[in-house]
């Protein structure tokens, strides 16, 4: 994998007003890069801001502060509609709920082709139809499905439609917001295999948002762990699972139930207590080991480095 940066996110903040005075800091100062061709996993419990992060990157929300550079250009400073369209072609999203994210009154053909229409990618009806059929076949559906409505499909098939729609404009970057959470286990594997296959064929880059940690580990190259709007740890997928440093990551990992009864019997859960942190200074996001970042104070960093197994 190249180390070319596709997306650079710096100091991204997304604050929502709550009532007259309150402010909810859903995303509070995120810094990370996504490399070309990789899958970046974003995990955390509900309400930690992982979905908001995805939605802010693709500009469904305007960021309160911060920059999102896509191929070196700032997405959030674009005002021109034409320019914005260009970004939208490059960035697409797959949503969590395959039931709510497809318009029930539109035929599959029109759902999938909507992006083509918006960007004027098909010169005539014949071509439009061809592209749609092609896309349907790519995601494991067929021509007959083009004339049906979403309610005629099962959950797994609908998620395939969502993927076909995202692929229609030939994007280079796809944000998948919990794309498999609503699906059955056996169907989850089908969709994940499909996403991996497409990545290999088209060189796609994914931001994969999920709370199912074992699936994230499986699909991601690097993983970021979020807690209350901040990223607390970022590392290679294997490194993160083998050598978690931040106590929150440890607690999250220790809570995953694994399909292994012997392991489950001996499992010890680790509870995270935010007050255990070193309070002497504001924690910062530091590179504790090469490519392994943790939100910590200097004292904590020394400790993490000392405790790091191997080497």
């Amino acid at each position: 994998m190249s180390k070319e940066k596709l997306l650079e996110i710096s100091n991204l903040k997304q604050h929502f007003k709550a009532g007259k005075k309150g402010v909810i800091k859903a995303v509070d100062g995120l810094n990370f890069d996504i490399y070309k061709g990789e899958t970046f996993g974003l995990v955390g419990e509900s309400g930690c801001g992982k979905s908001t992060t995805g939605r802010t990157i693709i500009r469904l929300y305007d960021a309160t502060e911060g920059e999102v550079l896509f191929n070196g250009e700032d997405v959030h400073s674009v005002k021109d509609k034409k320019e914005l369209k260009r970004f939208n072609r490059e960035m697409q999203m797959i949503f969590q709920d395959p039931y709510a994210s497809l318009n029930p009154r539109m035929k599959v053909e029109d759902i999938v082709a909507e992006g083509l229409d918006v960007h004027g990618l098909a010169s005539n009806d014949q071509e439009r139809k061809e592209i749609v059929v092609n896309l349907l076949e790519t995601v494991g559906l067929n021509e007959d499905h083009a004339n049906r409505y979403p309610h005629e499909f099962s959950g797994g098939q609908r998620q395939r439609l969502g993927i076909a729609r995202a692929l229609a404009v030939d994007p280079s970057f796809i944000i998948a917001d919990e794309p498999i959470s609503a699906l059955d286990v056996s169907i989850q594997a089908q969709v994940v295999n499909l996403l991996k296959k497409l990545q290999n064929e088209k060189g796609l880059t994914y931001l994969f948002i999920a709370h199912d940690l074992s699936m994230v580990k499986y699909i991601s190259d690097r993983i970021g762990v979020m807690y209350f709007g901040k990223m607390v740890e970022l590392a290679d997928a294997d490194d993160l699972y083998e050598n978690p440093m931040h106590p929150y990551t440890k607690s999250l990992l220790s809570a995953i139930p694994l399909p292994d009864p012997d392991y489950e019997r001996s499992r010890r859960r680790f509870n995270y207590d935010p007050s255990d942190h070193d309070q002497s200074e504001e924690p910062e996001f530091r590179e504790v080991r090469p490519d392994h970042w943790v939100l910590c104070t200097t004292k904590e960093m020394e400790k993490y480095q000392k405790d790091y197994p191997g080497k």
Partner: peptide
């Protein structure tokens, strides 16, 4: 069809 935490790069066995 469930990935294990032992990392594998092969395809998941999907039904």
């Amino acid at each position: 069809s469930m990935p294990s935490l032992d990392s594998t790069d092969d395809e998941l066995y999907a039904i």
